[in-house]
Design a protein around this nucleic acid. Structure first.
Length: 587
DNA sequence: CTAGGGTTAG
């Protein structure tokens, strides 16, 4: 079989015994002497791997016998080749085609380059495919790289690797890791790492950045007061965290409606030269609106403008959203135009917010006009934009239309997420179309989506209402098994469903269960339960429930009261007296 | 040089 000379040489390199042939040996030596100018060759290789997508096939013929295995060569290539992923590909090619085991110098250079380029997945796969073991300093940079790329679990593994080697990373590395944990919402890892910091003694080096992350972790865990306490301590020591830290505390306290603390923090910021920024105020406005103080939010917004702050597009969107949530579409629309006048063009967020606002009040004509405008401006239709329209339709008993959009999404290849499914499931349930709802629910599961409490809630509610309590209880168990916590109201529906079936005993069990979980059933639920218990002559239980009702300040409907008193009269007059006395007291 | 932050179910 005829072979091109170059392939023969490659063949020879991979089969050392063939080199014994004197003819080929001469050639081998001549080419080897030519190889000294690494830079020149590296430059050429660089160009080839950058410009030729299929260089793996052509490279052997271009450099039939170059000694690529020299670490000097690869280091040179790395310097020249800015795209580190291309170098990585070349590296793997070298080791698989030249049959060489990677040398530590090249490995180290390549690994550092990958880490520096923040190519954390590439760095990970590099370590997996070679037996290379980086030095501690290299691993520290690797940790930072992993954290920035969101691979927290991998980063923590490297921490333990260093710990086993008896190395305690520098504070910078810990900070990077803490920051990474916060970004992916893993406060559990923050506290775990902090524990490690204490153990290895690095805690003495803790700086204002570390403290900032700990405060933010407290806030994320809804332990805002503890975060605030920590802030006060560091302020005493003259350390002032970044705005982001103050902002997290402020939104935390806004969430808890602790406006005194919010105001304290704003004053501290000004006193410590950390002037509250757009973002600070945006959070304040956002939470005021969410907590039903939209008017206050609007006042803050207007004050800011009066004082010369220039709200940016995100701030406008927040305010418009707040106004839409309260149903103040007129005010929202006014801000919309004001924003445009100031030169901010509505973006995807602004459009979706406004569209949702119109949908919510049932003004689908306006919503559709905006929707078209949004598309004409080059914004793509998204899961969010579809969800907004569908939410509005379902809210106004137009679930069939919403379902039309649901199918349209599929045709257009727009991803349907959990919110999409939950919205339509709820819509169908509200209209009593339980079969359609269940089908959608099954489809949700089949799509591999993780259902939420609110996927189950409307289904359980409706099933109870149509008398299918057994099926409802089945779903309840599925939900619990997934670790999802039902909302309070769901208990109520099951109790009422059980009572409707005349199953007073189990209704009573669910009531006790609620008490044990410190949950408060609704007045209507308990009235229904008393009625059912009375009908079944479970008068002791009736009185037990009644007692709870009175303690809670609930009243019992007249009719139910009558039948209970009637039953009691048959049994024991003394009870009736006490009962009546208490009822009168209760009212 | 300027990120972060803002939109959809309940």
């Amino acid at each position: 079989m005829a072979r091109a000379p170059s392939s023969i040489l490659i063949f020879l390199r991979q089969n050392p015994r063939a080199r014994q042939n004197p003819n080929t040996q001469i050639r081998y030596h001549t080419t080897e002497t030519k190889e000294c100018d690494f830079t020149e060759v590296a430059q050429h290789i660089c160009k080839i791997i950058r410009t030729k997508p299929r260089w793996e096939q052509t490279l052997p013929s271009e450099y039939p016998s170059f000694n690529f295995s020299d670490p000097q060569f690869f280091t040179e290539l790395l310097k020249l080749q800015k795209n580190v992923l291309l170098s990585l590909r070349f590296f793997f090619w070298l080791s698989s085609h030249n049959g060489l085991s990677p040398d530590p110098i090249s490995c180290k250079a390549l690994f550092s380059a990958l880490v520096e380029a923040k190519a954390c997945n590439a760095a990970k796969s590099f370590l997996e495919h070679t037996s290379f073991s980086p030095e501690p300093a290299s691993l520290e940079s690797y940790i930072q790289c992993l954290c920035e790329g969101g691979c927290i679990q991998d980063a923590i593994d490297v921490f333990y690797r260093l710990k086993e080697a008896g190395v305690c990373p520098a504070i910078m590395t810990w900070n990077a890791a803490l920051s990474g944990c916060l970004k992916v919402g893993r406060t559990d890892f923050v506290w775990k790492l902090y524990q490690e910091m204490i153990e290895c003694g690095v805690v003495a080096d803790v700086d204002v950045e570390t403290v900032g992350y700990l405060i933010q972790a407290f806030c994320a865990d809804n332990r805002v007061s503890e975060g605030y306490e920590l802030l006060r301590q560091v302020l005493v020591n003259g350390l002032v965290p970044e705005n982001a830290v103050f902002n997290k505390l402020i939104s935390g306290f806004c969430k808890e409606k602790q406006y005194t603390r919010v105001s304290e923090l704003l004053h501290t910021m000004i006193a410590k030269n950390r002037a509250p920024d757009n973002y600070t105020y945006q959070e304040v406005i956002n939470w005021l609106c969410k907590k039903g103080k939209g008017l206050e939010g609007l006042r803050v917004f207007n004050d800011l403008k009066d004082r010369g702050y220039a709200p940016d597009i995100a701030m406008y969107t927040t305010m418009i959203h707040g106004l839409c949530t309260m149903g103040w579409l007129g005010e929202a629309r006014k801000l919309w135009f004001e924003m445009i006048e100031k030169g901010y063009h509505p973006n995807e967020y602004t459009y979706n917010t406004m569209i949702h606002g119109f949908c919510k009040i049932g003004n689908f004509e306006k919503a559709k006009i905006l929707y078209k405008e949004m598309c004409n401006k080059g914004h793509k239709e998204t899961t969010v934009s579809y969800n907004a329209m569908m939410t509005g339709l379902c809210l106004h008993e137009r679930t069939d239309e919403a379902y039309g959009l649901f199918q349209e999404m599929h045709q257009k290849g727009i991803v349907r997420d959990l919110i999409t499914y939950n919205t339509v499931i709820q819509g169908f349930c509200k209209e009593g179309k339980i079969v359609e709802s269940m089908n959608l629910f099954r489809e949700l599961l089949a799509q591999g989506l993780q259902p939420s409490t609110y996927s189950y809630t409307p289904l359980i509610q409706k099933l109870c209402q149509v008398g299918a309590v057994q099926e409802a209880k089945g779903l309840w168990n599925d939900m619990k098994n997934l670790g999802l916590e039902p909302i309070v109201g769901t208990h109520d529906y099951i109790i009422i469903g059980l009572c409707d079936q005349g199953d007073a005993a189990e209704g009573m069990e669910w009531f006790i269960e609620m008490l044990n979980s410190k949950l408060k059933p609704k007045q209507e639920t308990l009235g229904r339960l008393v009625e059912c218990l009375t009908q079944r002559d479970r008068l002791d239980d009736s009185l037990l429930v009644l007692e709870f009702m009175f303690r809670t300040g609930y009243a019992l409907e007249k009719g139910i009261c009558h039948s209970l008193v009637n039953k009691l009269c048959w049994e024991d007059n003394h009870f009736v007296e006490t009962c009546l006395g208490e009822i009168l007291e209760g009212k």
